[in-house]
């Protein structure tokens, strides 16, 4: 009986939490206010988990679930992604056939710039993610595009993230076109998809840290900071868009294209929500 009582108490707490309010902002270009959205989402989580420091959200579910944190910290002592960073560094420093290299494509030679991605590009009329920029760099130098979800592209991205460790995420929305992309990403985040009819928010806002069988879902605040990620379930490194596809597949929706506009806009919204947090990629997760 004790178990039932505490379970019921847990369920009622969850109800209360989902009813607790944070300021809401618009669903049109005229009314949407990204900065108000970001502050409201932070306030939502701080009210829900008052004991958790804002910065700790960069550590995902381990910020909230003490039971799994110790295990994760142990894993991070001998990081499973170390080899990937080395492999990424080697590729990053290997010149293309034309003699140029990745460093020539990026600001500051590509070092310490992870926090500025993704960004809105007027010339390209789209959101540019780091992985997209890596591939554009290759193509501009006569090399073939890399596959978007894992392998070399994730390793190069991991190396670039590692040079940005501790930098503060700082995604900007410079004009109305960028704002429209942000709004599209926001709409995607809150839209129900797949046969199971779930939005990202169902698990990663509403249902955060509540068990689904033995697993607990993480807060969306801090989601993007540790990518690319070495996932034990994959046994390898993968990009953020690979993870998006996995999530969408879990709710029985056919994944959208990695590095397509939809997922890039979603990344734009999610990264803006994490503005102010530190880059700590690559990371490891269960």
């Amino acid at each position: 009986m004790k178990i039932i009582t505490s379970l019921l108490a847990g369920a009622s707490l969850a109800l209360v939490a989902s009813m607790s309010s944070a300021a809401s902002t618009g669903n049109t270009l005229a009314t949407v206010d990204p900065e108000a959205d970001r502050l409201a989402l932070q306030a939502f989580f701080q009210k829900r988990f008052p004991q958790v420091e804002l910065d700790d959200y960069a550590n995902g579910i381990y910020a909230l679930d003490a039971a799994s944190r110790a295990q994760w910290e142990e894993m991070e002592e001998f990081p499973p992604y170390e080899f990937d960073i080395e492999a990424g560094e080697e590729m990053f420093n290997t010149p293309f056939a034309n003699g140029k290299s990745y460093a020539d494509c990026f600001e500051n030679g590509g070092m310490g710039i992870r926090q500025n991605f993704p960004y809105w590009s007027d010339e390209q009329d789209r959101v540019v993610t780091l992985e997209l920029a890596i591939n554009q760099c290759r193509e501009a130098n006569g090399e073939k595009k890399l596959k978007a979800k894992k392998g070399a592209i994730a390793q190069i991205s991991a190396y670039m993230a590692s040079t940005s460790a501790g930098n503060i995420i700082d995604v900007k929305i410079p004009n109305d076109k960028a704002k429209a992309a942000y709004l599209d990403g926001k709409a995607q985040f809150y839209s129900r998809r797949g046969q199971l009819n779930m939005s990202c928010a169902n698990c990663h806002v509403q249902g955060v840290n509540i068990p689904i069988r033995a697993d607990r879902t993480s807060a969306t605040l801090g989601h993007v900071t540790h990518f690319p990620v070495f996932r034990s379930k994959w046994g390898e490194l993968g990009t953020l868009h690979r993870r998006f596809g996995g999530c969408q597949n879990n709710v029985r929706g056919t994944p959208l294209k990695a590095q397509g506009k939809e997922y890039s806009n979603l990344e734009f919204f999610m990264t803006y929500m994490s503005n102010g947090l530190e880059v700590n990629g690559p990371g490891s997760r269960k």
Binding site: I4, L7, L8, G10, A11, A14, G207, I210, P211, I212, R213, A214
Partner: peptide, 23 residues
Amino acid sequence: CIACHMINDPDAKLAGLQGPPIV
């Protein structure tokens, strides 16, 4: 259903808590 709803059945181990228990 076990992913989210706890139920007092000995075969339903490690039920989730996203939804209210089946009581």
